[in-house]
Simulated assay, not measured.
Amino acid sequence: MKSTTAPTTTARKLPAGPERQAFLLLRTVFTVAPIIFGLDKFTNLLTDWTMYLAPVVTSTVPMPAQTIMYIVGVVEIVAGLAVALRPRFGSLLVVVWLLGIIVNLLLLGNFFDVALRDFGLLVGALALNRLSPKWAR
């Protein structure tokens, strides 16, 4: 009679506590949302994104507003991918990007509700950054 032993695995089981769950939730939303919003800059299905662009931007950057939105879309897609691959770096990229959006909205002098929402997102991205050293492996 042969005796068989179960193969041993060296895989490390990750804890599933609240900190890990918070990290996964934040990483997922800051990956998916920027990619979706970035792709929408090319289709304008969700909204006409050019209405959120402050006139000072179009007067400073010699390009049509929609062309600027294409660039914005690419940056947002890159930010989402950066969060997926390197959450500690990607989350800081999202923080800086959201800060730029907030400044743009304040310069526009309108959409203060959206600026406040984006500030909340900025704080969430900072939380992801603080959780990343422990959980992003």
Rank of each mutant, 00 (worst) to 15 (best):
residue 112 F to N: 09
residue 72 V to S: 09
residue 118 D to Y: 07
residue 79 A to I: 05
residue 67 T to I: 13
residue 109 G to L: 08
residue 66 Q to V: 13
residue 127 A to Y: 05
residue 78 V to N: 02
residue 89 F to Y: 14
residue 105 L to G: 02
residue 121 L to S: 03
residue 130 R to H: 12
residue 104 N to D: 02
residue 98 L to K: 02
residue 68 I to A: 14
residue 114 V to L: 08
residue 115 A to V: 06
residue 80 G to K: 10
residue 79 A to N: 05
residue 106 L to F: 11
residue 89 F to P: 00
residue 88 R to C: 06
residue 77 I to W: 06
residue 78 V to E: 02
residue 105 L to D: 00
residue 113 D to L: 13
residue 135 W to A: 05
residue 134 K to N: 08
residue 62 P to G: 13
residue 86 R to M: 13
residue 83 V to D: 01
residue 115 A to F: 07
residue 63 M to L: 15
residue 108 L to T: 02
residue 83 V to T: 04
residue 108 L to W: 07
residue 63 M to A: 15
residue 92 L to R: 09
residue 84 A to Y: 10
residue 63 M to G: 07
residue 97 W to Y: 14
residue 127 A to F: 08
residue 64 P to C: 12
residue 78 V to D: 01
residue 106 L to T: 04
residue 105 L to C: 03
residue 65 A to C: 11
residue 136 A to C: 09
residue 90 G to T: 04
residue 76 E to L: 07
residue 82 A to Y: 01
residue 108 L to Q: 05
residue 111 F to V: 07
residue 99 L to I: 11
residue 88 R to G: 10
residue 126 L to N: 03
residue 77 I to K: 06
residue 131 L to Y: 04
residue 103 V to E: 01
residue 135 W to E: 02
residue 135 W to N: 01
residue 127 A to D: 02
residue 63 M to K: 13
residue 69 M to C: 15
residue 63 M to C: 11
residue 62 P to N: 14
residue 114 V to C: 05
residue 94 V to P: 01
residue 121 L to N: 04
residue 97 W to T: 03
residue 70 Y to T: 07
residue 98 L to C: 04
residue 105 L to N: 00
residue 120 G to C: 08
